[in-house]
Design a protein around this nucleic acid. Structure first.
Length: 166
DNA sequence: CCCTGATTCGC
DNA sequence: GCGAATCAGG
């Protein structure tokens, strides 16, 4: 499969959304993650929202040359490795819950899980915690619900009521 | 061993 | 331009 305009567009979109190359490759289909990475570089959008990443590791091996054919044109030399520090001073999520990731989750941020931990869109609530506990006010109520919920509520109803918090 | 992106270079 | 092979890491 080639890079049609649509596929390139989707690639850009998914890459900007932070999906990994392999995930994008799977979603596109017909390409490997190497192909995706290669395309990403060719498009010139290698960098994205990647906080606190050295962006560039130390100088790699001087390129001892692997078992290949004869050399040709001189390649460009490694650059001085400029990096852009990304300050991210612990912000609480006051508006929409579920935007805190495991990386941005601070000490006093609600640790109520949002979504499926197995998925990569998994987040935490992230709002300011309720004084002491690990959860915000809303989720603390849910978390510390004794046995008040019994009555005639069926298992299905209970599951549905809880789903609201996931 | 799983994964990540980065890079080179034959095609 | 493409992407497999490879590298350097987490």
């Amino acid at each position: 499969m080639g890079w049609t305009d649509e596929r390139v567009e989707l690639l850009k979109k998914l890459w900007q959304e932070g999906l990994s190359a392999s995930q994008i490759a799977k979603q596109l289909g017909g390409v490997t993650r190497n192909a995706v990475i290669g395309k990403v570089h060719r498009l010139g959008l290698s960098g994205r929202a990647a906080p606190s990443k050295p962006a560039r590791t130390v100088f790699k091996a001087p390129r001892p040359a692997r078992p290949a054919a004869a050399p040709s044109a001189p390649r460009r030399l490694a650059e001085p490795a400029t990096l852009a520090p990304a300050p991210s001073p612990v912000r609480y999520v006051d508006e929409e819950p579920g935007t805190a990731t495991v990386l941005t989750l601070g000490a006093h941020m609600c640790k109520w899980p949002i979504g499926d931990p197995a998925l990569d869109n998994f987040t935490f609530c992230g709002r300011r915690t309720d004084e002491t506990g690990p959860y915000c006010h809303e989720h603390a109520q849910v978390a510390y619900q004794p046995a008040q919920a019994k009555k005639k509520s069926s298992a299905a109803e209970l599951a549905r009521s809880l789903r609201r918090y996931i």
